[in-house]
Nucleic acid binder design. Structure first.
Lengths: 335, 335
DNA sequence: GTGAAAGCGCTAACAA
DNA sequence: TTGTTAGCGCTTTCAC
């Protein structure tokens, strides 16, 4: 077996085998120019027969479209980034776009390394994802020669960003609680230096009105536990519903309530935020929670990059995508 | 601003600006051939000044090395794939290699779409990752013209595979249990059609010897709960330690024990498997568990691909990488 | 309708 | 030490 045998077939091989010139072969294969229908079919058949696959590198070099995009992510591949990446990939793969995944670990050196590699590879665009809305990218992304889209991160106002509508998610939760007859709704959430936490808390306050109370803490089960201990050991009226800032807190809340012999959802209804299934499906009872539709976020970003790369105009600014409520038993499921 | 202004600088621009030919510029920039030190420095400085960055596409077309690899994954970006991807990326980024992430969702159509795209892009190698050791890839990977490495999946024996050493992990757990004075150790695990489950169970039996008992179920907290209910309601001697097949089961076990008023670790010690932090850190008490060193698995795969792509010989076959034990309070932490 | 030729940006013989 | 030349595999005018 010689090198020639193992070498990939080129368009030269196709042309020779079909008895046409390479330009005709190219035209036939791509449906460009004018080609006799019969020749076209023959060329295509020959190409298939000898296993020809075009070299994407050569094509890109010429067309200046690499059909690849880079996804720069801030976190160590967390649970947020991945559903989004799946969404991105989902809309791109059928268009023949591939995705470079670059984990920056929030390290500027790594970020610049990845960014330069992406630029050198002539990617058609970059999607930047974070794990937090209010953290700037570890590297300047605002004046690149290619389109940049932000997901779960807010870029400059002349760029395109997709984020979950936290306020909408919070309203969804509170309305559902109200509709199931609850009136004393407490909000136990994460650190108030998160913009998402403040947005959710504000929406909660607007929706609950009189009697709204927000307890800020960290993102842990332990905090949920602690908060319930505190709330139920103080005097005065007790809540009949808890809206939690994330599922981990909610799990702590549910566990603490059970420890106290307080029934969920009968005595106190609980709603979480994130729909992180490993938690939400396993609480007892399973957790009703707000889903941020991460995959849809990714899908939208992919679509935006696609349009941008095709030279179309896309509205700039931040798009807040609606959340959805996943109803399980901790509030309102199978009442 | 004309097109020329926005066009990326090419090696021509560098050559012109430095007053040399493009081959000299190329040599100077890459340190190849013989170049006068002074010219070399001048060229480099000029390149930097005008913001020259080599076009990776053009370079790859010529050198036949794309410095990109594809990572084909079986699952919807689960918790296993990502730490591995991080490991892969970690060893490759400094070598200038980028990673295409391709989620196949175990769908043959998607898998072939991605595979073809990767091949067309002339990737230097492919890493296939699964979520289960005994699931074949959704597409034939064994006779590709480029290196293929399997991680958390076992390829054909003439290929290279890296998997966690399940037996070692199980022994680690059982030995730790024994060392902390336990003698009646029970194993509650997942479905026995998983090869990993059988390997762990066998190692457990070998290590425990007399009195070994394995309870197979599914991978849920619920099953852990159920199993404990069953075991502690039957007559006869009760276990003083439980080795669980994964962290979710372990969490169910710990919750069930607490419900029964059985102290962990005092009455019964518990060890899990996976070190999935969202669970393991949040059980009460926090879970001692076996870590499969997923990132290291990825790192090794990245190194293997690197060597293979460089034409070096690498031993074929399956390498089982040792697990590690993460000691928290459910057994032996801060005794 | 088809083919010859130029060239994308770069590297690598080889000549000078 | 440097420059000239060919060419990677492909697309794309532009004659024929």
């Amino acid at each position: 077996m010689t090198d020639k045998d193992i070498r990939r077939r080129t368009i030269h091989d196709v042309a020779k085998a079909a008895g046409v010139s390479i330009s005709t072969a190219s035209n036939a294969l791509n449906g460009t120019g004018r080609t006799n229908a019969e020749t076209r079919e023959r060329v295509k058949r020959v190409a298939k027969d000898i296993g020809f696959r075009p070299n994407a590198l050569a094509r890109s070099l010429l067309t200046k479209r690499s059909h690849a995009i880079g996804m720069l992510t801030n976190d160590t591949y967390g649970r947020l980034t991945l559903p989004m990446a799946a969404g991105v990939s989902e809309v791109l793969v059928d268009q023949g776009l591939s995705v470079f995944l670059c984990a920056t670990n929030n390290d500027p050196r790594l970020a610049r390394l990845h960014l330069e590699a992406l630029l050198d590879r002539q990617v058609d665009g970059i999607i930047f994802t974070a794990t937090r809305l209010d953290l700037p990218p570890p590297i300047e992304l605002s004046k690149l020669p290619i389109p940049v889209v932000y997901v779960f991160a807010e870029g400059p106002s002349d760029h395109i960003s997709f984020v979950p509508d936290d306020a909408h998610g919070a309203r969804l939760a509170v309305e559902h609680l109200k509709n199931s007859g609850r009136s004393r709704i407490l909000h136990i959430t994460g650190p108030d230096d998160y913009v998402a936490v403040r947005r959710r808390a504000n929406a909660y306050r607007d929706s609950v009105g009189e009697g709204a109370e927000v307890l800020y803490g960290d993102w842990s089960e332990e905090w949920g536990h602690f908060a319930i201990d505190a709330v139920f050991s103080r005097t005065g009226e007790k809540p009949d519903a808890i809206f939690c800032g994330n599922d981990e807190i909610a799990r702590g809340v549910i566990d603490a309530l059970r420890d106290k012999g307080i029934g969920v959802p009968n005595d106190v209804a609980v709603i979480g935020f994130d729909n992180w299934e490993v938690i939400a499906k396993q609480t007892r009872p399973p957790l009703t929670t707000v889903d941020m539709e991460l995959k849809e976020l990714g899908r939208r970003a992919g679509l935006a990059i696609l349009a941008l790369a095709a030279g179309e105009d896309v509205d700039t600014g931040t798009t807040r995508l609606p959340c959805s409520l996943v109803v399980r038993k901790s509030c309102g499921g199978e009442l």
